[in-house]
Each structure stands twice: as C-alpha cells, then as structure tokens.
Computed example of a mutant assay.
Amino acid sequence: MTFETVSTAKAYGGTQGVYRHDSTATGTPMTVSVYVPPHKEGQRLPVVWYLSGLTCTHANVTDKGEYRRACAELGLIFVAPDTSPRGEGVADDPAYDMGQGAGFYVDATQAPWAPHFGMWSYVTEELPALVATHFPADMDRQSIMGHSMGGHGALTIGLTLPERFRAISAFAPIVAPSQVPWGEKALGGYLGDDRASWRRHDAVALIEDGARVPAMLVDQGDADQFLEEQLKPHLLATACEAAGIDLTLRMQPGYDHSYYFISTFMADHLAWHAERLR
C-alpha cells in the first residue's frame, strides 16, 4: 500500500506531517495528519487519535487545534484522519451533514454510500496498521478523542474497544445520535431503517447495552448553538451515572462549538490522556 508524504514541518522540536495513501476500506485516497514529538532514537511513543467533526478535513485541527506544544511536552503522537472518503465517484449529499465531510465513523451498508463509506474499518483497522508501520508508535498505549461528530466517533469506538484505548475524551460530542436530527439522518442513511443496528454507533445506547470504561472526559460550551437540539450531554451523564462510569462533564461558560473552544481546552485533554498512557 502506498504511503506518500505530502508535507512535513518542524514544530516544537518534533515533526508535523501530512500523508496520503490509497485506502482499501474506502476505495479512495485518504489524507492523514500526524505529529511526532521529539524523542530519543528507538523510543516508542503513545498515540492519541483525534476524530474531527462535520465539514472538517484533517486540516482543521492541524491548523487550529493548538496541540503540538502539549504533545511535545508530554511525548504524544497525535493522529488526525480525514472525516470521510472524497473524490470523483464518491457519493455526496447537498447538505453539510451527510456524505463527503460527514462519514460519521460507521461502515455504511446502504446505497449509494456502501462502496466508499467504510470509516469505522478505516479508523479502527487500516489506519492503525499504517501508523504502526510508519511511525515510532507504541500501539499498546493508545487513546482517542474527538469533536462533535468526531466526539461521537471517539466515544463509540472507545466504548467498543476498551481493551485498546486507555482513555476517551471529547469536545461537544453527539452523545446520542439515535435521538437527534444529525444522527437520525446519518445513521438512517448509512445503515438503513433498522434502528437496532444504530445502537452500536450511539454512545448512550452502547452504555445502556453494557459497554463499560473506567472514565471519560467531556468539555461542552454552554453557548454552543447545537447544545440543546443535537448534542444533549445530559443524556450521557445519565447513562454514565447509571452504569457507574466516572464521567467528568465540564460545562464551559460562554464557549461555542468552534476551534476557539477546542484549542482552549486541548492541553487539558492531552494531559488527561498522557496520565493514562504512562
């Protein structure tokens, strides 16, 4: 499988790279951002996966996430994949919340999405194998985080694979996609009308169905325009309380849904991950 370097730049003593490769999970070229902090020769470093939100590519967090200083200080590799397959012949939707830029981290089973929208397999299987091959990654020390749609992805993947991910956190995640318009449209479109099949891609439903992790960290701005209709963090809080999961839910006064919010609390999240990745 090809793995091409698009660009590299030195940052905080480490290397910020952007890479492209042909994906078997999506049947398209995919682009991924990887930051490798300064380290000793032969040293293997823990990996933090960051999943982005609707309309985003790998570039949004790379350009605006302000993670490199903390990753350099903490010794963390930071991996940020794209949010969907893209290109000619890839299905799309005129709206921003479906199709290219909105893969929702599922393996689609429905037309016209199924041929390319294999984002669950891409993020959980194909890309980890490439990271393990091409970077000084300690794959026994992984954690996952994300924003909005990517927060949904981080929660569901982390809850499904607790033996792999030592820590899970999110910024303004879609915690119960089965109960909000964004999720109902995406899960129905990608997975079909059988709502039972949606449950493995719904963090609240996964917890209700027995998924367990020791703890999670979630930051949510109380001025987020999507808070009441799409995000509903109180549903996650209720599910975690009933399941005995230690959820730290921080409602941040005055913060919205943007990368100004994410970048403000990024270092907090990375420190939280690093503590659990020792």
Rank of each mutant, 00 (worst) to 15 (best):
S7T: 08
S7Y: 06
T8A: 03
T15E: 15
R20Q: 15
D22A: 15
T26C: 13
T31H: 12
Y35H: 01
V36M: 09
P37M: 05
G42L: 03
Q43P: 12
V47M: 09
V48Y: 02
T55K: 05
T57N: 12
A59C: 12
A59R: 12
K64R: 14
Y67K: 11
R68S: 13
C71D: 04
L74N: 13
L76F: 04
I77K: 10
T83I: 09
T83S: 07
S84K: 10
P85S: 04
P85G: 03
G87L: 03
G89P: 12
G89E: 02
D92F: 15
D93N: 11
Q100A: 14
G101H: 10
A102D: 12
A102I: 04
Y105T: 00
D107V: 00
A108K: 09
Q110S: 08
P112G: 12
W120H: 15
Y122L: 14
V123W: 02
T124P: 08
E125D: 13
E125H: 13
A132R: 12
T133D: 06
P136V: 08
D138R: 11
M139L: 15
G150S: 00
G151I: 01
T156M: 05
T160S: 11
A167D: 04
I168K: 07
A170M: 02
A172R: 03
I174D: 01
E184L: 15
G188M: 00
L191C: 09
G192K: 05
D193T: 14
D194L: 07
S197K: 15
W198D: 07
W198L: 04
D202W: 09
A203V: 03
I207R: 07
G210M: 05
P214E: 10
M216F: 04
M216Y: 04
L217D: 07
D219S: 15
Q220N: 03
G221M: 07
G221I: 02
D222M: 11
A223I: 12
D224A: 02
L227H: 06
L227C: 05
L235I: 09
C240K: 03
A243R: 13
G244I: 01
L249R: 01
R250A: 14
Q252T: 14
Q252F: 05
G254P: 09
D256R: 12
H257P: 05
Y259G: 14
Y260I: 14
I262Y: 01
M266Y: 06
E275G: 07
R278I: 06
